[in-house]
Design a binder for these strands. Structure first.
Length: 524
RNA sequence: GUCCCCAUAGUUCAACGGAUAGAACGGCUCCCUUCUAAGGAGUAGAUCGGGGUUCGAUUCCUCGUGGGGACGCCA
């Protein structure tokens, strides 16, 4: 609906005008409202009200417009014909489980998320990134993009060696060091695999890789089986990047561009050219490629596999990494690169913040959270909050009050709607939709019609919290409708029309739940 | 020390630079012979403090205050 209106305005307003359309809170400002006039007025130096009146004159009342109004200081508000909403209802019933999908687009987008080092269990921030990546990928897919969901596995290098050493130290074979991983999970693994560790003493990479492989299996189970987060590809740093020579290729590109220099025996990349605060080492003085160079190889791989866009979701500890990654993205020729840094998740325990550290092993794992809180609840809770906001998670509250969690509110609305469909003995097939004209009917229709717009918005600004918020709003409007309007027991024609409306509501809920990755319960 | 994120109702969070700042939980008052009350109706309650940019600022810039985090030839 918005697209029709915005097309109409685009035809009328001067070329190149950005058409911004809002949905006002209060219907007295219309179904849609625009503020384009302000920018036009500024350009021409004329009073906004004059420009608004002139533009409003030109926008001939199109078939789907009921009326429009110029409101000070220069808004134009539009009211659509009820017929437009009724047509949209037909559209929902026709498109069914593809209602809300955007046009197919050629762009291939890679979404990389979680990518936690397999040196231990997942943190809550990893889980947050997991849900975000999962739903963002779904959203982009619905909007018509081709999406690959990737987990980049750092399965070699120093942190794996450190893991191997940590296991050896846990058995008392070597003295412990500050940098070692000290969690219970290391001790547990080491004692179960004590024979292997002893047999391979000094081969720390080998020990570390065996441990990492096992931790990786646990990570996969938690993410995919328990939390329902989907991945298409687990990319191995060792196998897919180093062994395929991509680090070398990346190095060649950098050399050709004259951006590499030697200093103190190491080789440095001039990332400062791209806004980084200092240059970065790519080859150490011992002659080894750094993790950063591997990442460059990884970005090169993404580019050469045909992706025009990459979205990388990182945890808060990687903030210092953004500038150099963006430098690399540019160097390998990726058309668009976005990095989303999710902020910390803090756990509250009886009102107190728990300090969490992976190295020290004092933290609540994502796995523990998923075991205690139903996945639907955890997912919805994490996704309601914008990623750049710090999140306080009160575990007691989540468990205790889980019945009151907004996810149940939405699911309950769905169940209520389903229940009507089951009990109604009439058909909605030949309903006369013109009968849907009460305030509650129209509010619900409007909310349903907003669904494609929400997806479009979320896909363009990656604001996934729009979807959970929409779920709550749709539920609220439906509950309200349910209280005030009856379906079963009203005159047949009206009942049929309302039934069509309920059917459409069920459909939109199902599509929405699918994108959000939460279940659509048949009863509660 | 340098850099990043955050600051909105008692609490946890929303709000492309737009009109009267929205929800949820928690308070208080009502509503179940009616399609599932895990629901509905009502009520009280907020933009950290200075400056600036403009028709308009919770949003942008700047200074400050308070919280969280990152800064290794680790990843």
């Amino acid at each position: 609906m918005r697209d029709k209106l915005s097309a109409l305005l685009r035809k009328t307003a001067p070329k190149g005008t950005e058409i911004g359309l809002n949905v006002p809170e209060d219907e007295k400002f219309g179904h849609y409202s625009t503020n384009v006039v302000f920018s036009l007025a500024k350009k021409s130096g004329r009073p906004p009200m004059d420009v608004a009146r002139e533009l409003a004159e030109k926008v001939k009342l199109a078939g789907f417009l009921k009326r429009l109004e110029v409101a000070p200081p220069g808004f134009i508000n539009f009211w659509l014909e009820e017929r437009a909403f009724q047509d949209e209802l037909r559209e929902i019933l026709k498109k069914k489980n593809s209602y809300g999908r955007g046009k197919r687009k050629k762009d291939k987008i890679q979404v990389e998320f979680v990518s936690a080092n397999p040196t231990g269990p997942l943190t809550l921030a990893n889980g947050r990134g997991g849900f975000l990546g999962d739903v963002l990928s779904n959203t982009l897919e619905w909007n018509g993009f081709q999406v690959e969901r990737e987990y980049y596995v750092n399965d070699t290098g120093n942190q794996i060696i450190t893991l191997g050493k940590s296991a050896a130290a846990a058995l008392g074979l070597i003295p412990a060091e500050e940098s070692f991983y000290k969690g219970d999970y290391v001790r547990r693994w080491a004692s179960v695999n004590a024979a292997f560790v002893r047999r391979n003493k000094e081969k720390f990479l080998k020990i570390g890789q065996k441990a990492a492989a096992e931790f990786m299996r646990n990570i996969k189970t938690t993410l995919t089986k328990k939390a329902g987060i989907k991945f298409n590809r687990f990319t191995s740093e060792e196998k897919q990047i180093h062994k395929k020579g991509l680090t070398k290729k990346a190095m060649e590109i950098f050399r050709k561009k004259g951006l590499v220099y030697k200093k103190e025996g190491a080789e440095w990349l001039k990332t400062t050219t791209f806004g980084d605060d200092k240059d970065r080492v790519v080859i150490t003085s011992d002659g080894f490629p750094t993790y950063f160079l591997a990442d460059a190889g990884h970005y090169l791989e993404t580019k050469s596999r045909g992706f025009s866009r990459k979205i990388n979701i990182l945890g808060p500890d990687h903030f210092g990494y953004v500038a150099r990654i963006q430098a690399v993205a540019k160097l390998v020729g990726l058309a668009e690169s976005t990095i989303i840094i999710t902020q910390l998740v803090r756990m509250l325990d009886k009102g107190e913040r728990l300090k969490m550290s992976k190295r020290k092993g004092t933290f609540i794992t994502f796995n523990e959270l998923i075991n205690e809180v139903p996945p639907d609840v955890a997912r919805f809770f994490f996704l309601t909050i914008a990623p750049e906001t710090h999140l306080d998670f009160d575990l007691d509250l989540a468990k205790e009050k889980s019945q009151k969690n907004p996810v149940y509110y939405a699911q309950y609305a769905y169940v209520r709607a389903l229940s009507i469909l089951k009990k109604a003995k009439i058909s909605a097939a030949k309903a006369d939709l013109r009968l849907l004209s009460s305030r509650e009917d129209i509010s619900l229709l409007r909310m349903l019609a907003a669904f494609p717009e929400i997806i479009e918005d979320a896909a363009s600004d990656y604001g996934v919290q729009r979807l959970t918020r929409y779920a709550r709003e749709l539920a609220r409007i439906f509950h309200d409708f349910y209280e005030k309007e009856r379906i079963i027991g009203v005159p047949k024609n009206l009942a049929a029309a309302r039934l069509a409306l309920v059917k459409a509501t069920v459909q939109v809920f199902e599509n929405l739940f699918k994108i959000l990755g939460i279940s659509a319960p048949q009863k509660m």
